[in-house]
Write a protein that binds this DNA or RNA. Structure first.
Lengths: 404, 404
DNA sequence: GAGGTTTGTTGACTACTGTGACAAACTGGG
DNA sequence: CCCAGTTTGTCACAGTAGTCAACAAACCTC
């Protein structure tokens, strides 16, 4: 988005192309449905469809009779594999590179598992490029035309230039990964693509909001919890970034001023009450046991283990305390829980609901649905791809130059 | 805003007219500055200025030499009194009606003070219309052309139709004030104007964001505190409404789960720690003493009264606890405090800063400025006017039919 | 006063969407 | 099976807005 607020005539076409694509991304639509959705005339839609067809983005299939009078309207459909984004998930335990289509589906992917805590930015860039080549990036073998690259990082990313301010679990600080990655990709594959980079939690939220548990709602609170607790706020379909791009650190909402110290320097943060380590500790399990311990906890809960049930009850209450406050502040349509929080949701549902009911406020006393994230480990890739696809879809005609 | 996402050719002009007005609302601008700000060409700007001039909204004055080479660019300026909005502030202790110009200045106003707790919707509507007539609404005596009406209400207002869901301090519930007010205004003054209605805290925030302590920032958290504590979240210059329009109830953020019961049914809400009554109680004053008691408290603080200082210290700490959490969640550029909270800000500044510093989180460890609201009691009128002016300014050419 | 710079003005040009008439494809009734 | 009614695609034409490019106006510096 440029700072210019004025609209040129060309922006008009661009905006309308993007509007059509936007409608089509949530499913097929007949031309007449497009007319209704966009408010444009039949002739305008016809022209837009033709252009999108020429760009190789949309196909039309003959309209089926609907059972009602009138000439059937042909259905337009996005070609999911027409364009795609290169998505990269840089996390502590794995490095994944994938090509993701317009419909949010992973078309090809490679993954390198295992502890990567010694990975430097340089070695990571080299790995990414090598893996990208392995899934066919740069070879014109019928893979989708790539419109950009999206990278998910487990750390804080500065909004305007994509600098990785800090990624504690990778041991990175003040790292510019965009420039070397772009250069390396250009050198090895000949593709000079725009690169977007974002926090993994935010990207997971974007993916869930569009394709997962949040699809259909435009105001969503996403809370992701493992060892740390983070979140993202989706308002009117877009992520709230805040003044510096750091919005959404719900883990450091203060819910218990007398609580235990938090790694953030404060105390009684929400994270110190609902983080994975606390839960495991309360349940008498190894606080650093990770997913294995969580899995043990779930089987113990299925057995009805006393200590575990008590720990889960407390977990549910504290989740309710924090969510109740956030509901009052943000009034989301829906809350999506990811990570361990999502996994455990049904086990704490009763206590959580009770706490929410107790703190439900006045006339806004609606039940906000709290649901678990639906997308699995792919969510980060899908979200990362969205980072590249989003800007590209806002200006479709530009790829004419980009393709392949 | 209609649901149609497509842009017609006519929307283009409308959008560009609005863009020019938008720039001009924050001050004079030369044509060349408008070119830079909008990204349009000189010819386009010229045409837009001409049209705005014909609408009676803009005047140009000959350009002064700037001291640099080149032909001087004429300065365009909004005529503040060209159009205005009828602003109404319905509160418990006063009823105010005003005409507010494009620049957010109150051009004329009348006020009726005194306890109004027995005011019914019907009597309020009658009062409003009578007061509106008294400041010249409906008589074409050179008053600005009115483009709409904005009403500030101390209660919850449903977003889409303006129904007053509940206004506890007025004793109203499920009240439609829009329809009778519109009818009465049409009947008595001949004006059939669109009416906008909003929560007073939200409107105060909008006013502060545009003309007051928040001007210049596009991401603001506004917290208004008297007996109750509410707030508004401004993201990218627009207020976050949430899924149902109830966002911003920061008073019911849970900060102290073991705290005292709150009128919302929960306990330990922020409001129960920083509300006016709690502060006065802790300071040994009459909890229901209102502004008089607050005034007493401030003089006592100036004297260095032991009990009062302790109460203020606690107030500052609790303010810090809540604000720290909200900063982590929302990452605002600036926090604006209104009502009693704003009045007391400097008295609690040290404790507040200390608490914020203690809980400042990682790399987002920036100092977020916390400032008091600047606009006085007019802020609600200005915000209410904005409710009417905003939509009108988005479609300037339409008033051609409206004027007078 | 000459040359350089920035800006307003003007008329031709381009691009987009709207309009309206007509044709195409369906339903349903006689 | 045909015809009226309905909905929709197509096409030529018109309207509107903004860009472009050339020129003139108003300023600066030397």
């Amino acid at each position: 988005m440029d700072s210019s607020t004025g609209l040129r005539a060309a922006d008009l076409r661009q905006s309308n192309l993007a509007a059509v694509i936007g409608v089509l991304r949530s499913g097929d639509a007949s031309r007449s449905e497009l007319v209704a959705a966009t408010g444009l005339t039949r002739s305008a839609i016809a022209g837009l469809i033709v252009e999108l067809g020429e760009l190789g983005l949309v196909v039309e299939s003959a309209g089926e009779p609907t059972g009602r009078p009138g000439r059937p309207s042909p259905r337009a459909r996005l070609i999911p594999g027409a364009v795609g984004a290169l998505a990269v998930d840089v996390s502590v335990t794995r490095l994944a590179v994938a090509i993701v289509g317009l419909d949010g589906r992973v078309l090809r992917s490679v993954e390198r598992s295992g502890e990567r805590s010694d990975a430097t930015p340089t070695s990571t860039v080299a790995d990414i490029v090598e893996m990208a080549e392995r899934i066919g990036v740069g070879s014109s073998d019928g893979s989708p035309a790539l419109v950009g690259v999206g990278v998910a990082i487990p750390g804080l990313v500065r909004e305007h230039d994509g600098l990785v301010v800090v990624a504690p679990n990778l041991g990175w600080a003040e790292v510019d990964i965009v420039t070397p990655l772009r250069d390396a990709l250009t050198l090895r594959t000949g593709l000079d693509l725009p690169i977007g980079i974002g926090n993994e939690s935010d990207l997971g939220a974007v993916a869930e909001a569009r394709f997962g548990a949040g699809s259909g709602s435009r105001n969503i609170l996403f809370v992701h919890g493992d060892v740390g607790v983070g979140g993202s706020i989706i308002v009117d379909g877009g992520r709230v970034t805040g003044g510096s791009g750091y919005a959404g650190e719900v883990g450091h909402l203060v819910v218990n001023p007398d609580g235990v110290p938090c790694r953030c320097g404060g105390s009684g943060c929400w994270e110190t009450e609902i983080g994975e380590r606390v839960l495991l500790g309360r349940a008498g399990l190894d606080p650093n046991g990770g997913w294995a311990a969580i899995s043990d906890l779930m089987t113990a809960a299925a057995r009805g283990d006393r200590e575990v049930m008590a720990a889960l009850a407390l977990q549910g209450r504290w989740m309710g305390v924090g969510l109740a406050g956030l509901i009052n502040v943000l009034d989301p349509e829906r809350i999506v829980l990811g990570g361990v929080l999502g996994e455990l949701l049904e086990l704490v549902r009763d206590e959580l609901d009770a706490e929410l009911a107790r703190r439900r406020f006045g006339p806004s006393a609606r039940r906000i649905p709290v649901v678990a994230a639906e997308l699995g480990s792919d969510s980060l890739l899908v979200g990362a791809a969205e980072l590249a696809l989003g800007p590209a879809l806002a200006d479709p005609s530009r790829w004419a130059e980009v393709a392949y």
